[in-house]
Design a protein around this nucleic acid. Sequence first.
DNA 1: TTATATATGCGTAAATTATACGCAAATATA
DNA 2: TATATTTGCGTATAATTTACGCATATATAA
Lengths: 230, 230
Amino acid sequence: MKLEQNIKIAVDAIVFGYADNHLSVLLIKQKFGELKNQWALVGGFVKDNETLNDAVNRELKEEAGIKVNYLEQLFTFGDNIDRDPRFRVISVAYFALVNSTKLVLTADTDAEDAKWFPIKELPTLAFDHKDILNTALLRLQNKLTYQPIGFDLLPKEFLFSDLENLYCTILEKEIDRRNFRKKILSFGIIEETDNFSPKKSGRPAKLFRFNKLKYNKLAKDGFLFDINFA
Amino acid sequence: MKLEQNIKIAVDAIVFGYADNHLSVLLIKQKFGELKNQWALVGGFVKDNETLNDAVNRELKEEAGIKVNYLEQLFTFGDNIDRDPRFRVISVAYFALVNSTKLVLTADTDAEDAKWFPIKELPTLAFDHKDILNTALLRLQNKLTYQPIGFDLLPKEFLFSDLENLYCTILEKEIDRRNFRKKILSFGIIEETDNFSPKKSGRPAKLFRFNKLKYNKLAKDGFLFDINFA
DNA sequence: TTATATATGCGTAAATTATACGCAAATATA
DNA sequence: TATATTTGCGTATAATTTACGCATATATAA
């Protein structure tokens, strides 16, 4: 069997973060090559002896010094045959979420060129990274309606209003506050804490916490988290 | 930038077919190599200048002489680092459906070693193809509940009872016949024909046809096809 | 010819869930 | 003390799901 394949395999990560009612994406400024100074997704080539997951996590650490809360394979992009003149590149894209405490990038890594961009203020992106990003955004919006991944974008303890705003912001629609609360509570996967959050005005609100154990239990039994609102 | 990556990229297809109340998968008997005479998924290495989709369709034609009704990317499997001693193989798996008229493989291709296996009577599979198959089966079951892909497994004109049995068989559960009919009809994506199907006993039943145009219209408007039953 | 088994096609009551709100409570600020 | 603001709980109504009943149309057996 002849096999002279000149294709290299890369991984890319679309990392979403949420803070102050804004959804953001983590981007890296390219240091080398023709695309020097262009913004791109975190990513790089896969080493011969590491899994795809390991490769993504390594790149996330090397390029942005970050550990993500949620990671899943998104899609493999391989149709852009002329992306690099030296060889064809096929990219396995990953979808990642970090909680808001990680939205400030630490300066002690070589991550000086990593930056968060609000999803509404993106720069021009290298390669086909704009397409990948759009695919990821659709996945995020979709997944939000049937899997409770919103918690991975929030700090450990959060207000109901934070969670509600997150849904409204990412899904770009109004949701009735009281019905939202009722439905989320009905799942039995978040619990009250004894803590309150300081507020500028209005009645003080309890902080809540996501109970991953209870979620896993329900998910294993095939419980359907239907988080859709009119 | 040093880059000595010794990885080859392949595509594999999990092709599902449905006939006589049985879900089946298309497998190929390996002709060469260490795994000679073992059964495996349709698949092969990607050529330098073809898209991933083209690669899958080419393999489907070459190895089984088949054109599929539905094809989508499933998942990229890359963790099985020692699959081939010569190099590492990363496989982009595709999920495919054919309608029941194609369940008889034509002998005029080099497909003499292609065969349909009922999902409940699988042989031992090569590589990690059993894992890939399981992933595909879960995808099929899941997708059936929110996207009307069942029609891609049936002939152009079909009985409601065929569709119902397909759902019962693949999802492995009982569904109330009358409620099933009501819900599917409520979507407005299938239409009556003037034809009847010959039956062994019982009242003659009308044949129905899937209207893809109406489906596409609804899908574009974000209509939710909730095909879940208690 | 008549009875029986089988599958279809239509309908409806009851249970459940979703939607649209009302409103008191608790705080900051004017 | 009044006002604006946000929270937390509740409830009536609409919509949907679920569990069936039953007449109809055919093949086959008696």
